[in-house]
Design a binder for these strands. Structure first.
Lengths: 198, 198
DNA sequence: ACGTTTCCGGACAGGTTGTCCATTAACGTC
DNA sequence: GACGTTAATGGACAACCTGTCCGGAAACGT
């Protein structure tokens, strides 16, 4: 009684149509009719599923975020490394699988809410990691963990976006993970190959 | 003959109205009439200045970007530090003065184009710095300068956004510049106060 | 004071939104 | 396999927003 096959089908179709069309024409240019047409669904049906375009995008994003969360859960449980190493790799693999959707979100399409949802969730997780670690080591953070987390997320999302917008398969997820880890650990002067002195 | 006072006045009014209204209700919710009403301008007048809402926002952003460029120019000429130190501080001060507009842009409001314009311009400047420095030092960058630049911009914009969204005057621009410099130079493990070992 | 440019306000067609409803088709269940 | 329930359909609706046009009024620079 909870899951009607028809419901799943149209939800799926709407999701796919949305992603495909945003990739083609950009979110702002889309009409509800464009979406329903591509999805082969009546316009009235759309409104029985979502209040509007934004609501659809939000729902799609929520689903994606939850799926990601389910993958991260077991990793977070068994390790204390937070978001480096395995969890980071899991994120990158997920992004690889849902490439277009991640692209669309990272571009800030929609009213920006999808990206904000992703960002806030990431900041929550990452700042928790930095906080927990500081406690374990009994050291005072030089900088507020939330700020560090926002820096982390900003940097990682920017690089991920560059990665996803580039040629597919140009760089394996493992390579990118290493790159990001190096950046995080040693800073950007290290990355560029010259001295922190100046 | 190039500058009619009326033109300047309405352009200004439209700009202010746009920024104020986006802060209040968000870009997507705005009508052209909302803007003209707030600006005390006839709707027809709006269209004699801009094609549409997006065009107005784009123009406002372009102006801001140019103003910033003019401030950065003399600094870039006299120093070789690229975007750290004085230029970074100039950016932060500019953001402080045009606080709401920067906020609106960094949030990714509009169709995301304003933020993209800002980002791309920043990436151009920063990657040039990293490239130039690598040449001077005759060292091979460990990571592609463009990627480093994107990381730089992602991190800095994220932290700037946090800064601008927070209580005004909570942290002086100088303090933020130091924070960002530390993050750039030493990485985030340094910032959080524990060992790069893991 | 004069010719020019901008602003005004009102009107226009065209497109989009969100809602409604009666009808048809697909579904899960027994 | 038949039955009651639930979802999808197509069409119609008012409300709104968009972008464009115009003649007349007002402000501008010289």
């Amino acid at each position: 009684m909870a899951e009607d096959r028809r419901t799943r089908r149209t939800r799926r179709a709407l999701r796919d149509a949305l992603v495909a069309l945003v990739m083609e024409r950009g979110y702002a240019a889309l009409t509800v009719e464009d979406i329903t047409e591509r999805a082969d669904v009546a316009r009235a049906t759309f409104y029985s599923h979502c209040r509007d375009k934004d609501a659809l995008f939000t729902r799609v994003t929520t689903d994606l975020l939850q799926e990601l969360g389910e993958r991260l859960q077991p990793l977070a449980d068994k390790s204390d490394t937070g978001f480096t190493g395995e969890p980071l790799l899991a994120l990158l693999h997920h992004a690889e699988e849902e490439r277009d959707l991640y692209r669309v979100i990272l571009r800030g399409e929609g009213d920006g809410k999808p990206l904000r949802m992703f960002t806030e969730e990431a900041v929550r997780r990452i700042s928790a990691v930095f906080r927990r670690r500081a406690e374990q080591n009994h050291r005072e953070p030089r900088i507020d963990p939330e700020v560090i987390a926002r820096a982390w997320v900003g940097e990682h999302f920017a690089v991920m976006q560059w990665w996803l917008e580039g040629e597919e398969g140009r760089m394996p997820a493992e390579g990118l993970a290493e790159l990001l880890l190096g950046l995080s650990r040693h800073g950007r002067y290290w990355a560029s190959g010259f001295d922190p002195a100046d």
